[in-house]
Design a binder for these strands. Structure first.
Lengths: 240, 240
DNA sequence: TTGACATGGCGTACAGCGTACACCTACGAT
DNA sequence: ATCGTAGGTGTACGCTGTACGCCATGTCAA
């Protein structure tokens, strides 16, 4: 259909379609950040009048829905095999990789009020992995809630660690002040660090933090499953 | 300072201050929703011109920071006592109560780019509870990451369950369609429900889902602590 | 008493946003 | 030859956050 250059000079560009709009939106958000993404800028990027976009998406919310779908579609299908725990683990880490390519994605995902179908497909498939592993529907229900956003491969790092000022004197002063008011934060932030003042929050590997938490959860789920957990049974709370 | 009515009729209202601005903003957000909260509406609510607000907050972001501070200040101080797990549990559930009074709070908290000091106070104090319980700084570091937004008493329910249409015929049709495309979702959503089609997502108690996940995590932390977990030690992953 | 100054509120104005609406143009089917 | 439709355009509206300059008032020094 679209030979990129036909014999004559090409006065009309190929017509837009929904897919091209969505992909351009993803690329533009990668470039300029999701908070700067506007219908006008996206239109400009596509060489088109702003209102032209509305022939392909109903409004900006639907555009964002579509962007989420594009990304979620990149997540790998589940590994086959009997080990549900490892299969789930790998799938979630694969979802994480997809999201890491688009740092704005978590915020957009969280802002959706209706899950796009592709998103439900993913959740449905993940649930299927637990059920295939033998977990009861009941336990799986709780498990999915417990995973929360972690099933997408991200946790909201509720407050990003502020980066210290460039000036060394100023930095030392702020460090001293912080150590006085927030001694415990400073204590755990500088674990294993050689240079206290400059490495606050540095020695922190997002990937291993994520895996640590994921494994605590998965191990907990497995334990409950093996112990024959049933809903409403008293004494479940203290699993030890 | 502000006798509420002085002798004469009061032609001038008491001057604004930062605190009154913040409290009015919280109340207004409770009323009309955070996405409808604008500087203009807030000013109107306070009987004042929009630009008057800027004498008390630098900009809207700082207003939102302040609103978060107001809420976090409501969280109960920690219970004393040697049982760190229960103390943490109760504190987090208390934070949850504070947030539940303001349903917009989680989204605002997550959107902050710099943590207000009150927020750091809370985190510092929570960390102190783990350290007082004997957990190493290293383990506590991971633990805080693993808690993520749950330390504030909320989990992002990434996609809210859509409510079914009112028309019963339509509802049945959508249910049949969903059961076909997303069988596993339907399976776990209808656990323990008597009327499948109408009760999807109904039999789901947010509070107990939250506690389930929190307990899986806390139990996991306790187990690692008792097993003498140390960072970087291979074999930690499979805690079983 | 007088002037200086700080505090707090006001009015205007601007750029940017999402998008409703009417219009036009080109193309495929009849 | 005509018509319907898909896709792109131009204009316009109401809303947003907020920069800037002005003005009224209260406090304090001289």
């Amino acid at each position: 259909m679209s030979r990129s250059e036909n014999g004559a000079a090409v006065p009309r560009r190929a017509p837009l379609n929904r897919e091209r709009v969505l992909r351009a939106a993803v690329a533009l958000a990668d470039d300029i950040g999701i908070e700067s993404l506007s219908m006008r800028k996206l239109a400009q990027e596509l060489g088109v009048a702003p209102m032209a976009l509305y022939k392909h998406v109903a409004n900006k919310e639907e555009l964002l829905d579509g962007m989420v779908s594009v990304i979620v579609a990149e997540v790998d299908p589940p590994l086959p095999g009997p080990d549900w725990k490892n299969a789930v683990r790998h799938r979630i880490l694969s979802a994480r990789q997809a999201l890491l390519r688009h740092s704005w994605a978590p915020r957009v995902i969280e802002s959706r009020t209706q899950a796009p179908p592709v998103v439900l497909d993913y959740m449905n498939s993940l649930i299927g992995m637990f059920l295939a592993g033998g977990l009861s529907a009941d336990l799986t229900h709780h498990v999915m809630h417990a995973l929360g956003s972690r099933m997408w491969g991200f946790t909201q790092e509720v407050f990003p660690t502020p980066q210290p000022p460039a000036d060394p004197g100023m930095r030392a002063a702020m460090f001293r002040q912080a150590a006085e008011r927030f001694p415990h934060i400073v204590a755990i932030a500088t674990v294993g660090a050689h240079d206290d003042a400059s490495s606050v929050g540095q020695g922190c590997d997002d990937q291993s933090e994520f895996e640590f938490a994921l494994d605590v959860l998965l191990d907990g789920f497995e334990r409950l499953h093996n112990e024959g957990w049933r809903s409403g049974v008293p004494g479940n709370r203290a699993a030890g």
